[in-house]
Write a protein that binds this DNA or RNA. Structure first.
Lengths: 153, 153
DNA sequence: ATAATAATGAAAATCATTATCAATATAATT
DNA sequence: AATTATATTGATAATGATTTTCATTATTAT
């Protein structure tokens, strides 16, 4: 069970302690590709470490988000979701059904998209001096099921 | 004060009553280009109609979102924000500072971007039979101020 | 080992949002 | 214009997610 030594380093370097709960939460994300809610993380962590409390999970989630080790998502359903911020994947596409709230993951950025995003990023850096780490695209629409249930416009 | 007759129509056509609170909320959005929180809408409405309650504002916000007359945003700061869904503007770019939570609006889609998004949309329709109404891009990064306060990686 | 202090767990507190329910306003009908 | 049926409202309680509090515990430096 090697774990993620680089993320551990990142914590240490910023002066944070490398505690069991933090390692446990990080492990969950390394084992789980999906974006998880805080509660889901809590349950998963709980299986191996029943002593770790929900508040600590929340605190850890916030810390890791600050450290940019994970990403926080919100699709308007009232709860945040978290996903490991890999070094490779920097693009996040999601389809959200505005009718039923269903969320579908989608991930296959085209060359063209990557280019146009890069262009936008350049502009943002120039205009606002913003340093971009990542981006998300949310598509909002009506899913297959809901289209059948209710007619269009 | 002409108001938005087409949005009124949309409500009526779907069998909803055209009430004073609903008109008042719609007016706020027509007068206000920014994305507002529910509380902000409540205060703005309250200036002209002190009788309208917060719960009604929330209900109206949800209804208008369902009707797709407004769009709901969430940048991970714990509250939703709403903005008029104009017929012209279908692209929403936001920069979010993961350090301080600052949100900057940004809006100048390039041809290239529009093309690549259209491509993605086409794929989504084919693959998931999703009918796309709009999309949002959130850029996450570090704003100018926070870059100065705290060194990089 | 010991000290200094950051981090934790449990529970209370907070914040945004939703549900409840009696009262009211809207739209259709007379 | 008055009446009726019912969707909508306002006030408040309830909910659900997240944060704070504080005494206790664990981590790191000494």
């Amino acid at each position: 069970m090697p774990g993620p030594p680089w993320s551990h380093q990142r914590l240490r370097n910023r002066g944070f302690r490398l505690t069991l709960p933090r390692q446990a939460v990080l492990n969950i994300f390394n084992q789980n590709p999906r974006h998880l809610t805080a509660e889901e993380v809590f349950f998963l962590v709980h299986r191996n470490y029943p002593g770790i409390g929900l508040a600590t999970v929340y605190r850890t989630l916030n810390l890791l988000t600050q450290m940019r080790l994970i990403h926080k998502f919100n699709f308007g359903d009232g709860r945040n979701r978290y996903e490991l911020a890999s070094k490779f994947k920097k693009k996040y596409h999601h389809l959200v059904c505005v009718q039923c709230g269903k969320i579908i993951d989608y991930d296959s950025p085209t060359e063209k998209e990557a280019d146009s995003i890069k262009e936008i990023e350049k502009e943002l850096v120039n205009k606002y001096k913003f340093k971009i780490n990542s981006y998300q695209i949310h598509f909002y629409g009506i899913c297959k099921d809901c289209q059948n249930k209710q007619g269009g416009e």
